[in-house]
Amino acid sequence: MSIIADRLNRISPSQTIVISTKARALKAAGRNIISLSAGEPDFRTPDNIAQAAMKAIEGGQTRYTDVAGTPELRKAVAERFRLDSGLDYTAEEVIVSTGGKQIIYNAMMATLNPGDEAIIPAPCWVSYPDIVTLAEGTPVIVPCKRENGFKLTAQELEAAITPRTKWVFLNSPCNPTGAAYSAQDLRPLCDVLLRHPHIWIFTDDIYAKLTYDGFRPATFVEVEPRLRPRTVTMNGVSKAYAMTGWRIGFSGAPIELTKAMNKLQGQSTSNTCSIAQAAAVEALTGPQDF
């Protein structure tokens, strides 16, 4: 009899990690490798952020923090949401986790019951379906057409909705396609979701600052504030601030769900690294010209 739980047989290893590991092995063997696997900036964490981490170590900020993050960081996250997108989250509605992936894991584990469905536009980041499956939900993959810029349309969203739909994911800008949604793009999707009040929205905005030519992607609650009571807005410092290894993701969400995610995190990883949290405060509140 195998010691491995059945739930692990329902998911695959992270393909991002598999490819990244292979690329590192080939580089170590002397091969000239360009890895297109992980979303990894090719520049260093800014010096002011690194200095803030060293100052935190020297100042003794090396102990446990609140599970959901230090008050300073949660306040900084709430303020960054306000400055970047006009979103009105309180610090109590913010949780800080070990990267954006843990935010997704916490939210799905805290909400999905067996048979609940999560709509995932594709091409998509490879971990969404497996996290939903691990939480005993059912991923509903909706292929997005090339002629629509790989963006989910209102008609495709409406067709995928059933009475069992609990979540809709949206990653903008999208990993891997780069598809990014403007406010005009999101408006028809918001109209569909307003007609289906049983559905929650998970918006993954981790790449929101990596845009070009003056384009700024919108996010759901910014476009339609009436969706706020059932939306999780996720972001982090990994991509925009070149801090992938620091492992800091965060979200704003209704207080009931944030408390449930905090409860779950308290029985899994507890707080994120205190030093990384101090660095993230500097990232979010310091100079943004980087």
Rank of each mutant, 00 (worst) to 15 (best):
M1E: 12
S2Q: 11
I3G: 09
A5M: 04
R7E: 14
R7P: 12
N9I: 00
I11W: 02
I11G: 01
S12R: 12
S12V: 11
T16P: 00
I17G: 02
I17M: 08
V18I: 04
V18F: 04
I19Y: 13
I19D: 04
A23Q: 05
L26C: 06
K27P: 14
K27G: 11
K27C: 14
A29P: 01
R31E: 12
R31T: 07
N32T: 08
S37T: 00
A38G: 13
A38M: 11
E40A: 06
D47Y: 10
A50D: 14
Q51M: 14
A52T: 10
I57P: 08
G59H: 13
V67P: 01
A68E: 11
A68V: 06
E72T: 06
L73G: 04
A76I: 01
E79Q: 13
R80C: 08
R82G: 06
L83Q: 11
S85G: 10
G86E: 03
T90C: 04
E93M: 09
I95M: 05
V96P: 02
G99F: 03
Q102N: 06
Y105E: 14
Y105I: 15
A107G: 04
M109G: 02
A110G: 05
L112E: 09
P114K: 15
P114D: 08
P114E: 14
D116L: 01
P123E: 05
W125C: 05
S127H: 12
Y128R: 00
D130G: 10
V132K: 00
L134F: 11
E136Y: 09
V142H: 08
R146E: 14
E147A: 09
T153G: 02
Q155F: 06
E156S: 15
E158D: 14
A160N: 03
T165K: 02
W167E: 01
W167A: 00
V168T: 06
F169C: 12
S172R: 01
C174P: 06
N175G: 05
A179V: 10
A179Q: 13
L186F: 11
P188H: 12
L189F: 04
H198A: 02
W200P: 00
I201W: 03
T203G: 10
D205A: 14
Y207R: 13
F215V: 05
R216G: 04
A218R: 13
V223D: 12
P225N: 09
R226W: 02
P229A: 02
T231N: 02
T231K: 03
T233L: 10
V237Y: 05
K239G: 08
A240G: 06
Y241W: 15
S251R: 07
P254H: 06
I255D: 00
I255C: 00
E256D: 14
T258D: 01
T258G: 03
A260V: 06
N262A: 10
Q265L: 09
G266K: 05
Q267I: 15
S268A: 10
S268P: 00
T269A: 11
A276I: 14
Q277G: 02
A278L: 06
A279I: 01
V281K: 07
T285R: 15
T285G: 08
F290E: 10
